[in-house]
Amino acid sequence: MHTPDKREREYPAGLYEAIRGYEDAKAPAELLPGILNGLKPRRLSLWQRLLRLMREPVTVSFTPARGIATVAVLAVALMSLQLVWYGAEAPVAERTSVLLAERAVAVPDAAHGTVPVRFVLADELRRNHSVAVIGSFNQWQDGGYSMRYDTAAKVWVLDLMLPRGEYEYVFLVDGRMTIPDPGISLVREDNFGSRNSVLYVGDETREI
């Protein structure tokens, strides 16, 4: 175990930036209803609830000015009943109803029949700064689907596990330009004026 010297403690600032700016893959919409469907309602005895209530830490904090103002407001409220009375709009209630609706949505059956797939884009001179794969398997969103550049092979690579099925995809280059996979001959018009590569994932002798 070596003692770290001062120089080693200095890291390029870009390092921290990269960590701070690191993007998350987007969570799918079915996650929430899937979770809620898996929850069983709790049954707590009155005694349990009482115990927990007693164990909860309670913090009280106030500034003197606010204390005085609170007292003043209370006094005025007592003196006159014409203060604005508003029920706390429970945003929770709205959210709850939306969530209940979501809970009614059928959770898709998730079988683990995934197949490892590797996407490759050759780039001899490393002309591109970043490449991502976007397609029907990730709602055409690049978060979490960036390719890494393999300097030995001079290609951009991304490995994924995909469920069996048919997918369309393109490469998103430098965050703004899309190209179909040059190595894939099966393409489909995208109706936007360009083409998508088509990928069949699964047992080759079985139809999808």
């Binding site: 797939v117 996407f119 190595g183 894939i184 001959s185 080759e204």
Partner: peptide, 17 residues
């Protein structure tokens, strides 16, 4: 054969499945 399926068309990119 299945070997034919795994490779793409060659060229500048390929997908192995």
């Amino acid at each position: 054969t299945s070997r034919d399926i795994r490779q793409g068309t060659g060229g500048s990119g390929h997908v192995s499945q």
